[in-house]
Simulated assay, not measured.
Amino acid sequence: MKDILFYFVVIAYVTAGYGENSAPDQCQALSPLSQCPMDIPSMKLLKKLYEESPDKNVIISPIGVFTLLSLYASGSEKQSRDEVMQLLGFNYFTQLLDCYSGLSEMFSFMNQKYIILANKVLVSDKYTINDGFSYTTSLYKSEVDKKNFENQTAAAEAINKWSSEKTNGIINEPVSASDIDADMAVALFNVIFLKDKWHVPFSVANTKDQDFYVDRSTVVKRPMMHLKHPLYYYDDKNMGAKMVMLPYKGTGFRMVIVLPNEMDGLPQVLEKFSETRLMDSVNKMRPQGDKVYLYMPKFEFKTKIELNDILPKVGVTSIFEQGSSGVVKERTVSVSKALQQTFIKVDEEGSTAGAFTGFLFMPTSLENPKSEPIPFKAHHPFLYVILQNDFVLFAGTYTH
C-alpha cells in the first residue's frame, strides 16, 4: 500500500487594470535567490505536458510542483532524492533546500494583495511526523495539522476549505472524497494565487475577432487584443523566436510571450528552452525607443495534470516506487498520487492565474534610438511564462 498522496492543484489569477502610461524598469538586478535554476526544469515539465496532452492549450505552475518535490525530498533518500535534485538542477541537497525554503520565506513576506504562496502538511492521526521533516516544514512556512483520513469526506472538506480561503474562493473544491485514501499517512499541498493588473492595459474597444492559425491548414477566429506601447522586446535568432514583455503593476511581476518565427515552430522552441536557460533570453530584452504593435488573443482555460504520468518522463520515478523513511516515524511512505490543477484567464485587464498543489503523501539599460514600430502578432501557437523577477510562477502554451 502506498501511503502518501501528492496532490498538485495550481490556480493562477492575474488581472490587469489601468496603470501609468510608461513601463516600469523590468530588467532588475537578480535577486539573492537567483541561483535557483528554475527555468530549464520548468520548460522540461511544460514540454512533456504539451507532448502528452491531446489539448495543446496547457498551463503548469512549476514553482508549486518543485516546492513539494523538494519538501518531500527532505524526507527521502538515495535515488528518490537524487532524481529530484537532478531534475531541479542541484548537485547538493543543501542548495536545493536553501533555494525552495528561501522562496517559501520570500513569498510569505510579499504583499498578499498580489501573490499568495502557501504550503500545508496533513499527517494521519495514526502517525507521528519525523522530527527532521517537521523542521523542514517550518523552513517552508508550512501549516501542519493532524487529520483522520478514514473520514474521507471530512478530510476532503478540510482541504477544500483551506484552498478556498487561500485563493479567495477561486479554487474551492480541488479534491473530492474519492481522492482521499483511508490508509494515507501524509498529504502535502501547495497553493499559489496571483492577482495583479497590467501596468499598461489593453483597450476593450480595440479587441476584434481576427484569424488565428492553429496550423498551416487550420484557421479559426479568436478575439485579439491590441496594444501599442514601448514594451520590452527581443528577437532571439538562436531560439527562432521573438519575445515581448507585459509588466504587471506589482513589482517584478511580468508575463513574457515567446512567439516562434515559424507558424509550426512551437515544439522546436520548447525543445530548445528545455536545454537552454530561458532567463538568458529574458534578460536580453530591452525597451524599444518606439512602440511595439502587439496583437494577442484573450483566453481562459483550465488544465488538470496527472503528474504520476508526467514526472517519470522527466526522470522522477523513484518517489512512486521506493519508500522514504524520513517523513513519519512509524514506517516508510511513497507517493501514491500526484496531481495539479491550473487555471488562467488573460484579458484586457490582465490575467488571472492560480495554483493549488497537493502531494497526498537584469542590468538597467538605456532606451534604443527611435526606430520603426515593431509588429508582434501572436496569431499562431506560442509559449508564455509568468515571472516574479527570475522565478517561473506559471508556464503555458496557447495553440487554439
Rank of each mutant, 00 (worst) to 15 (best):
I4N: 05
I11A: 14
A12L: 07
Y13V: 04
V14K: 09
Y18H: 07
Q26G: 02
Q26M: 09
S34Y: 05
D39N: 15
L45C: 04
K47P: 01
Y50S: 07
S53F: 11
P54T: 14
D55V: 09
N57M: 10
V58L: 03
V65M: 08
T67H: 04
G75I: 01
K78N: 15
Q79N: 13
Q79K: 15
S80D: 12
D82W: 08
E83N: 09
M85Q: 13
N91T: 01
Q95P: 00
Q95F: 01
L96G: 04
Y100S: 12
Y100D: 09
E105P: 03
M106V: 01
S108T: 07
I115V: 14
I129V: 15
N130H: 13
N130Q: 09
K141D: 08
E143T: 08
K147S: 09
A154K: 13
A155H: 09
E157W: 03
W162S: 06
W162A: 03
S164Q: 03
E173S: 14
I180V: 13
A182F: 03
D183N: 15
F193R: 09
P201I: 05
F202H: 14
T207K: 12
D209L: 10
F212E: 13
M225F: 11
H226P: 00
Y232G: 00
D236R: 05
K237M: 01
G240K: 02
A241E: 07
L246F: 05
M255P: 00
M255Y: 01
V256P: 10
N261A: 00
E262A: 08
D264P: 01
T276C: 02
R277N: 04
M279D: 04
D290L: 06
Y293C: 04
L294K: 06
K298I: 00
F299N: 11
E300Q: 15
F301C: 06
F320Q: 07
F320P: 09
F320D: 10
V328D: 13
K329Q: 08
S336Y: 05
L339M: 12
L339T: 11
V346L: 09
D347Y: 11
D347E: 15
E348G: 03
A353Q: 13
G354Y: 07
T357V: 06
F359P: 06
M362D: 10
E367D: 13
N368I: 00
P369I: 02
S371M: 07
E372H: 08
I374P: 08
P375G: 08
A378H: 08
A378Y: 05
Y384I: 01
I386R: 02
L387V: 00
L387E: 07
Q388P: 00
D390K: 07
F394G: 07
G396Q: 10
Y398P: 00
